[in-house]
């Protein structure tokens, strides 16, 4: 068997635990990218990840690095606590849109505001997946959820919150980018964004947040394929991809 060559294998940053996500959910891809990034940058054995409350709540079992589970929305505060006492450790949070953009918006803003040297992996699937499909701050106008049964109405429920744009306005933030994982080329771009963010943290250059456009086929009531198409056709136009802030731009490589 000497002509067998391994061309692809599961990242060493992930455990053998069965991922608890629904079939076709893009949470899984994002996990893979985070794990690969930490392994490639040789950070996995000096990292603490913070699991937030949402479908990703069980990911303390999925990453091979140290993990701490946080109360709903409080992950950036927990990360701050850790980073301040262990500045040489790499600290990231993994948060959904309900967790970060709703109940935890204050913690997210103030971690950025203080310029905490942490990385936030922000997963925007325009819904509360875990609790069964309620409206999130990022739910699109007209999108039906269990608490916007007639579709989100801007009059009473506001316009969807653009987190990357908003976080970019915070003076303390260093790097903010929005990416998507709907096809291989975007998956590669997303990985680059993570490498950039964790590298900035390694160099002690401050707060980084990568927003992922993600899907929730189950609560959107779609097949995985349709969900990806829906994200491309509806989410990306409202949530354009790209770098929203880069304080390190122009610096010598």
């Amino acid at each position: 068997m000497n002509n067998v060559e391994i061309v692809y294998k599961k990242s060493e940053g992930l455990t053998d635990k069965y991922l608890s996500y629904c079939p076709g959910c893009t949470h899984g891809i994002i996990h893979k990218l985070v794990a690969e990034t930490l392994v490639e940058l040789d950070l996995i054995d000096r990292t603490v990840g913070i699991s937030s409350v949402g479908c990703s709540v069980l990911n303390y079992d999925f990453f091979t690095c140290d993990m701490q589970q946080a109360a709903h929305g409080r992950a950036p505060a927990v990360a701050t606590g850790i980073k301040r006492v262990r500045p040489n450790s790499i600290v990231f949070t993994y948060q959904g849109d309900g967790d970060l953009a709703s109940i935890g918006i204050a913690e997210a803003i103030h971690a950025a505001h203080r310029g905490e040297n942490i990385t936030i992996v922000f997963v925007n699937n325009a819904i509360y997946g875990m609790t069964g499909g309620q409206m999130a701050p990022t739910t699109l106008i007209g999108q039906k959820t269990t608490t916007s049964p007639n579709g989100r109405d801007a009059k009473t429920q506001g316009l969807p919150l653009k987190i990357a744009e908003m976080m970019a306005t915070i003076p303390g933030a260093t790097y903010i980018e929005r990416v998507s994982v709907h096809n291989p080329s975007h998956v590669r771009k997303a990985k680059k964004a993570l490498i950039k963010a964790f590298s900035i943290q390694m160099e002690n250059k401050g707060f980084t947040l990568i927003e992922f456009i993600s899907t929730c086929p189950v609560n959107w009531g779609m097949t995985p394929k349709d969900a990806v198409d829906w994200a491309v056709d509806n989410m990306i136009p409202y949530y354009p991809l790209g770098v929203y802030k880069d304080k390190t731009a122009g610096e010598e490589k």
């Binding site: 709903h72 929305g73 309900g98 709703s102 109940i103 918006i105 509360y128 875990m130 609790t131 069964g132 309620q134 409206m135 701050p137 269990t146 608490t147 916007s148 049964p149 009473t156 429920q157």
Partner: peptide
Amino acid sequence: YPITPQNELPEYLSKHMPLYNRVFVQAESE
């Protein structure tokens, strides 16, 4: 604010309170 196992309560009200011209708000936190 959504949380299991009481979600059907706000979900029901999100649909029915407006029919009675009453207020339903999903807040950003508890």
